[in-house]
Amino acid sequence: MTIAETSLATANPVASRKTRRPDWIGGLLAVLLGIVVVVPLIVVAIWAFAEVWRYPSLLPQEWGLRFWTATLSRPDVWTAMSLSIRLSLVVTALSALICLPAAYAFARMDFPAKNVLFLSFLASHAFPKFGLLVAIAGIFLNLGLISTFWGVVLIQLVGTLMMMIWIPVAAFQNVDRAMEEAARDAGAGPIRVFWSVSLPQAAPTIFAAVLLSFVGTFYETEGAWLIGAPEIRTMPVLMITYINNQIVVQYGAVLSVLLWIPSFVALMFTRRLVGSSSFAKGFGV
């Protein structure tokens, strides 16, 4: 008891001196970033619950949920929403189906031209995206894929390839090879090893990648706009028309708040992955 007390007493001044020194730079950065990052979003949130907000009042004159009911009763919102969700689900499922086995192959197998092929996935960032989309649109025009569901699926599928390859590749590579060998040793064949050991071990990271792909597809605007117009109107595309036509300010605000929910979920689940250095490494640093 006494020993513990004395050791605490001696350890204390050192520890407290360290924690008490204020982190001025950090505080300043946090405040600046806070203003720049959070204020625009707060303004939108206020608009979503404002019924009357005339200049130059600092806050809305009347608050309420009237525009939520108004927005949610618009049929085009529901059509776009269900289309966006269907699109994102199909794209993410297809992407997982074709990319996860490929990622496993890149991580664990040996085959000709492996490095060149893997590099070409990472290098797909090396092209200006919208220029590429226009070039693809030129091809799709001849194929009759413009303004079709599957045309948009294809274009968005390409957009997910890179993330769905390299994050899972890193995840599979991080699985201890001895773990897989131990499973072989216990009598499991290669497919069983993949299913019972490699996949569950890599699952948290892969889940994050799948979630990021889903959210990324959900918000994908440029491909949907260029390839999908005018028939395929996803949520972001609808949002742009709302902004352009300036019909009712609150429609945009309500949609923004609604649209941000999936992103918030992604933020919760993937922050650790995104903050890790291995994530940034995928972009070539």
């Binding site: 001895a178 060998e181 499973a183």
Partner: peptide, 11 residues
């Protein structure tokens, strides 16, 4: 086989 890194399946 017993591996150096124990290779237990952590899931």
């Amino acid at each position: 086989m017993v591996f150096q890194s124990h290779a237990l399946w952590s899931h």
